[in-house]
Design a protein around this nucleic acid. Structure first.
Length: 202
DNA sequence: ACAACGATACCCT
DNA sequence: GGGTATCGTTGTT
């Protein structure tokens, strides 16, 4: 996708990434699949965003220009984001799940399991399957030679819910996924629109 | 130098 | 629905 695709409202980018192809170079071939689940992390008023306390050494790429890849470590694993909006804003879209399509055998080998549903069904699982770690942090997704996102399926049926695994700003409906897709993470009860938890008062 | 904390995933009931 | 392994980052001595 061109730079301008990412240089827009983070919530719009998160929704429009659904159905696009996430591709990772593997030798002379590409592996990857359709993006089926995303979450928006905003530049302001979003205490669960890594950018909330301003730039640091580790989140620097989140403040780079739109279309930059932001890879961060968590619980000895990695997750990947596409940076959105203008340089310096600190907003991004977390890609939480893809539907595996290309290079499935290679992904099976990297994950060490054969169940296709479990190959890339979660942000850390898809990073392991696609051989993404901090070495790719800061890469450019626009015309990227190692990892990129291209056009794909047209207007999939999308729905939203609250985000997964966070302790703050749980009321914001910033998770987007393709309705009914088998490769969306979480429980099936989360695969439906439902009210988000209210912010807990202290 | 050290302790606490996750945008997780796996295993259990 | 809950407990926890595991480790980079950050904030605190």
């Amino acid at each position: 996708m061109p730079r301008g695709f990412y240089d827009r409202s983070t919530e719009i980018v998160a929704q429009e990434l659904l159905g696009k192809a996430l591709l990772r170079k593997n030798g002379n071939h590409w592996m990857g699949g359709w993006i089926v689940e995303t979450e928006a992390y905003l530049s302001s008023d979003d205490p669960s965003s890594h950018s909330h306390r301003g730039p640091t050494r580790s989140n620097a790429s989140m403040f780079d220009h739109a279309g930059t890849l932001y890879v961060y470590p968590i619980h000895a694993k990695y997750c990947l984001n596409a940076v959105t909006e203008q340089k310096g804003k600190g907003s991004a879209v977390l890609i939480r799940a893809i539907e595996p399509v290309w290079g499935i055998e290679r992904m099976i080998a990297r994950r060490g399991l054969t169940d296709r549903r479990r190959l890339t069904r979660g942000p850390a699982m898809l990073c392991q399957a696609l051989d993404v770690d901090r070495g790719l942090d800061g890469a450019d997704l626009v015309g990227g030679s190692e990892i990129t996102i291209t056009g794909g399926q047209s207007s999939p049926e999308m729905t939203s819910s609250c985000r997964i695994g966070i302790s703050r700003a749980q009321d914001l409906p910033l998770r987007f996924f393709i309705d009914g897709n088998w490769f969306v993470s979480g429980r099936s009860s989360d695969h439906r629109r439902r009210p988000c938890k209210p912010i807990r008062r202290s």
